[in-house]
Design a protein around this nucleic acid. Structure first.
Lengths: 130, 130, 130, 130
DNA sequence: GTGGTCTAGACCACG
DNA sequence: GTGGTCTAGACCACA
């Protein structure tokens, strides 16, 4: 069980970005994609830190951000759990997507591309449904 | 006339990102969109610093990044000028767009959205050619 | 051990060239010659600044140029490390040599010396393999 | 006559180096190569400045350096002349070459190349006598 | 006047 | 502790 989740949370770290952000994003993605199930228990801070070979402070920071997102809950003495509320998960997923889209379009607009231009560029990246 | 370029380069700074990056991006966008013309003279480091109410060193750093991009040329004792080569400008614009698209799609993929999903979300933002 | 690297990086600064370029060049040379090993940790910005009796910002600038060259990697909160990739090192070494040779030959040509003349002058400097 | 020398001194300027150095070098080279003859009269500062479309101060600086080299002489009320002494010219040429060779070899040594390595690299650049 | 380098010292994010 | 950004203000080379 724990072994299993451990596998899901094992991933490669990139030195060019803050580590805590990568952990944070990875968990959010895993939940959004359903790789991690609702209500599932997260590894402890120390465990995950050891798995990823990083400093526990870094994992802690990621966990705090996840909790602020409302994606995890801390149950005293039991550990950290993914929320069991599917609505919360969906909400988080959508608001993240929303933010990404808006930021992206603003950036492209800043470069003088219209929404139409952008659509074409994206279509050429793999219009076959991925 | 200086007034004119000044207007184009006057913009709001945001404290959550490095100031020099914001200046850098703003100039790149302005050139990419054609708001600043090819061969045009940039305000001097000191002028722009005063306009934006930031330190000249910060502007200098932005100017150096622009030069590394090949987007500007500095003529000793005369100032900093936008390159007159339209190909360089186009190259910079395209590589910025390319990077933005890829980063965006990776982020959306991380949230479990397919390219098709993404296209729909964008279409709903303004399918009318903006 | 720190003592050791410190020794390698201790050198004399010359006021007739930008200090950050001298630091930059000195590190490049040291890596190219193998005086500094692959993957080795550089002194921290502050340490080196103190060793060379210059401002930390000046060292920082040199470190940033090195990173742009692909010769170093910075690990957040841990420090700056020489890349472990021997290919990158070789590439940097060769491109520096290439540039030096071309600049030199152009200069000699400007003075009316043929490549043959140049070869003779160099041979007389130490034809015994140095 | 003046027309002729004008032609010899007309050349392309590169914005990435100090203009006065380029003028200085160009004259030194021209004399070293014999393109400009001994005792020949240089254009006036203003004339040359106009020919090259640069600031007279810049030409002035180049002329001062040439005089410091001993390559030109100023005759009051008549203008600036290339020295008539062939020994001076040869001396200047050789000391410039000497300096270039030494600086170059030091640079290559800094990169870990022996004189032998350097000879090979240069030979491959055009061992056929230029 | 222009860009460019350097210093001193502050503050921040990250680990 | 690390690197990174920013400021204020000095000084230099160049045109």
């Amino acid at each position: 069980m724990k072994e299993e989740l451990g596998g899901k949370l094992q991933f490669e770290l990139d030195l060019s970005q803050p580590l805590y952000e990568q952990v944070w994003n990875h968990v959010r993605s895993s939940v959004a994609k359903g790789v991690i199930g609702l209500g599932e228990k997260m590894p402890s801070v120390r465990e995950l830190a050891q798995m990823l070979q990083i400093n526990p402070n870094t994992v802690m920071r990621a966990y705090q951000e996840l909790e602020r997102d409302g994606l995890t809950e801390t149950r005293r003495g039991q550990g950290t759990f993914i929320t069991s509320d599917p609505i919360k998960v969906a909400t988080v997923r959508e608001s993240l997507a929303q933010a990404a889209v808006e930021e992206f379009l603003a950036r492209m607009d800043g470069l003088g591309f219209t929404v139409r231009d952008v659509m074409q560029m994206i279509r050429s990246k793999g219009g076959n449904g991925e």
